[in-house]
Structure formats: C-alpha cells, structure tokens
Amino acid sequence: MEVRTIKVFTTVDNINLHTQVVDMSMTYGQQFGPTYLDGADVTKIKPHNSHEGKTFYVLPNDDTLRVEAFEYYHTTDPSFLGRYMSALNHTKKWKYPQVNGLTSIKWADNNCYLATALLTLQQIELKFNPPALQDAYYRARAGEAANFCALILAYCNKTVGELGDVRETMSYLFQHANLDSCKRVLNVVCKTCGQQQTTLKGVEAVMYMGTLSYEQFKKGVQIPCTCGKQATKYLVQQESPFVMMSAPPAQYELKHGTFTCASEYTGNYQCGHYKHITSKETLYCIDGALLTKSSEYKGPITDVFYKENSYTTTIK
C-alpha cells in the first residue's frame, strides 16, 4: 500500500517557510505537534488534498525554529505562539472599519479597549522592536488589523473576551517599542525636605499616572512627601515624541487643539466601556464603527496623549 502524501510549508514567522512532505494517514499533531492554519487549530486533523502548498504555523520545537521565533517575536515564552494563534482565530472574524481616516474595530468580545489602543497607536510616533509587531502594525494602518490585535493580546497575556485596560495595554506595548531616546527629568520640591531631581528613561519617561493635564504637570502637581507634608512635583525636561497622561476616570474637559487623542471610560472596574476622542479640525468621538463630532467635550476621561518633541522648564 502506497503512502499518500502532500507537500506543505511549516513556519513560526510566515517569513521562513520549511518544506514538509506530510503523510495523509496521520494527523498534523502526530507529525508536527500543535499546528495552526489561519489561526485555526488543526492539530487533530489529517492532511487533505486542499492543504497542498498551504502554510501551517507550528510551535518552535527545534533550534532553527526557536531562533526564527525569537528573532521575529522577541520572546522565548513557549506558550506565546499558541496564544497568538488562538487569538487570531477570533480577531480574523472582527470587522476593521476605516473611521475618520483611522483603522478602528467594530465592537465584539469586549474589544473596546483594543480599538482605543489601536486608534491611539496610529496617532503617536512609535516604532516597535519585534519585527512581528512592526509588520502587523503597518498592515493594521492599511486596514488589516487582525494579526496586530492578536499579537497585542498575546504580548499582554490576554484572551479574547476578557476586559482590558488601555493604560495597561499601552504599557505592555511600550515595553516592546523603541523608547531608548526618551528621557524625563522631574523635580520634587518640599518646604521641609528641599528639592530632589529624578531622571527617568524609556517607558517611565512617557507615562504618568495622577493627572490628565500635561500643562498642569509642567506647572506642578501636589504629591505627598515622605515627611508627610505636601510637596510639588513638576516637569523639568521632556525628550520624547509623545507623552501619555493618565488618571482614574473623572469628568474632564478636553479643549480642541490642546491634545492629540484621549480615552474615555464609562462604567466601573468590573464592567465598563471605552471610547476614543481625537482632536482634528474639530473633536471626534470614535466608538467602534461609530463616529460623532463636537466642538467641545466633557466626560469621564482616563488617558490623554500629547505630541511632544523637546521641553525644558522655565521655572527657576
């Protein structure tokens, strides 16, 4: 009895394709271990004539594949690729409408935090270190965002349907971005203890939790000093293409032309909904596939993004 075979390709990165001759009487799992086709788990399936010449994702289970996976995804987590594939199996079914010149995501599976993050990423200057993220990001900007969303979920250790947080998501993504040249110098002034300067680099240099107003941050924000008295913390120097200011959701007025974009969060910790506000020729609110415009805006804002380049204080 002759062994019926077909020729397929296996890959971990969709760049390096490895030619395989597979036995049609055995499952993919018996031949390769966990195997995925377009995100779908085909591990328990036997090869079919229609699979001839198709590319299958496999887990990096030998040295060659491990090197290829690390170079593309910059992670050695053995569960990463499987999590990416199972997320992709959902995100490829989502709709990605162009809204006001940006790629958004039609609401499904509690994905409003991903839509808000995706919209924000198209408006701030950011370059990702893992080629996987950078490639998928370019495709997302062009309207094909399924891979990018699935990668975000995998890097953030999230599953489809789980509630997510924009600030946490951005923080994970910033860790995989090139923020080497970003720098922030802060000064804390206390009447009792004097003053202390701190220099922050990388992710810490672009994120701040405690106030939404970048102007206020430049002037000074009140913080408790270690001595128990009130101290003032203010920005001395900022070198970065953008800054992200966050605070627990509270009524906040966004003035046209003073910011790049913002995240609105309605609801409580267990259950809520994100919308995205962007400042173009007027203010726009993007909620999944829905767009509304207004000249002014007041609502429960939790993150505001500002364009920056270089700032030095005039406070002496």
Rank of each mutant, 00 (worst) to 15 (best):
T5M: 13
I6M: 12
K7Y: 14
T10A: 11
T11G: 08
V12L: 04
I15H: 15
I15Q: 11
L17I: 14
Q20W: 06
V21S: 12
V22G: 08
D23N: 12
M24S: 11
S25M: 10
Y28K: 09
Q30D: 12
Q31D: 09
I45Q: 11
N49A: 12
S50F: 10
G53I: 05
G53L: 11
K54W: 12
K54A: 15
F56S: 04
V58D: 07
V58T: 10
V58W: 07
L59R: 06
D62Q: 09
T64S: 13
T64K: 12
E68K: 11
F70N: 07
F70P: 02
Y72S: 10
Y72K: 08
Y73F: 09
Y73W: 04
T75H: 05
T75Q: 12
T76L: 14
S79W: 10
L81Y: 10
G82F: 14
R83T: 02
M85V: 08
S86V: 11
A87D: 03
A87G: 13
N89M: 15
K93C: 10
K93V: 09
K95M: 09
Q98L: 13
G101S: 06
L102Q: 09
T103F: 07
K106F: 12
W107R: 00
A108H: 02
D109Q: 13
N110K: 03
N111H: 00
N111S: 05
L114A: 01
L114Q: 03
L119I: 06
T120P: 09
Q122T: 03
Q122D: 05
I124C: 06
I124D: 00
F128W: 10
N129W: 12
P131K: 08
L133V: 05
D135L: 09
A136Q: 08
R141Y: 05
R141I: 06
R141D: 03
E144M: 08
A145P: 11
A146C: 06
Y155C: 04
Y155R: 05
C156G: 05
N157F: 06
K158R: 01
T159V: 14
T159Y: 09
G161S: 04
E162P: 06
L163N: 06
G164I: 00
G164L: 01
F174E: 05
Q175F: 03
Q175I: 05
K183R: 13
R184Q: 05
V185P: 04
L186K: 04
V188D: 02
V188F: 04
V189I: 11
C193T: 02
G202C: 01
V203N: 04
A205W: 04
V206P: 00
M209T: 15
Y214D: 04
Y214S: 02
Y214G: 01
E215T: 09
E215K: 07
E215Q: 08
Q216L: 06
Q216R: 09
F217G: 05
K218T: 05
G220S: 05
G220K: 03
I223R: 03
P224E: 11
C227H: 04
C227S: 01
K229F: 07
K229R: 14
Q230V: 13
Y234P: 02
Y234V: 07
Y234T: 08
L235A: 01
V236K: 03
Q237N: 09
Q238I: 03
P241F: 02
M245Y: 09
P248M: 12
P248H: 15
A250D: 14
Y252K: 04
E253L: 09
K255E: 14
K255W: 00
G257N: 06
T258M: 10
T258L: 07
T258K: 10
F259L: 00
C261M: 04
A262V: 07
S263G: 02
S263K: 03
Y265H: 05
G267P: 11
G272K: 02
S279L: 06
E281P: 08
E281V: 01
E281H: 05
L283E: 05
D287A: 03
L291M: 13
T292F: 13
K293H: 15
K293G: 09
E296C: 13
P300N: 10
I301W: 11
V304R: 01
F305H: 00
Y306C: 00
T312G: 10
T313W: 12
